[in-house]
Design a protein around this nucleic acid. Structure first.
Lengths: 159, 159
DNA sequence: ATCATTGCAAAAGCTTTGCATAAGA
DNA sequence: TCTTATGCAAAGCTTTTGCAATGAT
């Protein structure tokens, strides 16, 4: 077995992504600020789903930041393609980093609320076909299945 | 070709669906109330997307009802398979009636915010395959593409 | 006669916003 | 120097909840 199995080192080189973000900001007349860079970097280093509060806690442990800045930065990060809304839970939104165009999809257990990921290459084909049919220019897609995970199927008798 | 093409007349016979709802309530020890029946019927007659406020207005024009009852009824309607959350917009959820298992999907324009519907039969196959792979018992799925509709592509220069 | 449901209003909780201050360009 | 961004706190919104009254079984 080769020594490294996961192509996601803890201290990834994010130069390219950060540069893309700065470029985006400048091109729109937005300013490159310490706060926006910190937020972007934190998101890029995060390989899980998270919500605003988790992001806030994570950032705040390293640098002073306010939630307002996070809320104001999120639309920028989404528009420049680094971040995506993934699902709504408990009345608030959860996000995740976008890796290029390789979106993955989610299975969510309505009982234990856990989220399982999967990817299905057909989805990109459906996206492509539908967009061509409808004259739509896609920025992304989302596929989600909800139901009972195998664990919860056993435990539950009702519902 | 048989004479009838669209099984969706304006004043549909909802006996079956309403009966299913009552059955669901009883089987769970929930009570069949005037309010719940009014909400269910209103949802079943609604062939568009709607949010809680629209449902509230629509119901209130016919019968006294409070929003709290609507909010409390929605989870029941979702669990018994008559209703589905379809998308979050402007910070609140939009819903639609579920027609059996024939879910349709949405294209949403991030500029004009219009929603276009489409259906793609492959999605049900993906659902099936993934659930088998993961040992998941599906209750439904959702596929959404966002981007610019043909109309907005012309108008927009930036973004 | 019970006990779940309703309505109202208050509470919650996430997100947005106004405004003075700070800081990119 | 000129604007935009930030932080704070207040405001805004949708949704949830407590409680007394109502109503289903």
């Amino acid at each position: 077995m080769p020594p490294m199995k996961k192509p996601e080192p803890t201290s990834e080189d994010l130069t390219e992504e950060m540069e893309a973000f700065r470029k985006y900001l400048k091109s729109r007349g937005f300013r490159v600020t310490r706060e926006r860079e910190a937020i972007a970097e934190c998101i890029l280093r995060n390989h899980d789903h998270f919500d605003v509060d988790e992001l806030f806690m994570s950032l705040r442990s390293k640098t002073p930041i306010s939630k307002a800045s996070i809320y104001r930065a999120i639309p920028l990060l989404i528009r420049c393609g680094l971040l995506a809304e993934v699902y709504l839970e408990d009345g608030h939104m959860h996000y995740e980093r976008v890796y290029g165009r390789e979106l993955h999809s989610h299975l969510r257990c309505v009982n234990c609320r856990r989220i399982f990921e999967f990817s299905a290459p057909e989805l990109a084909l459906v996206e492509k076909r539908i967009c061509r049919q409808e004259g739509f220019k896609s920025d992304g897609y989302k596929f989600e299945i909800w139901g009972l995970c195998s664990n919860c199927q056993d435990k539950k008798k009702k519902d």
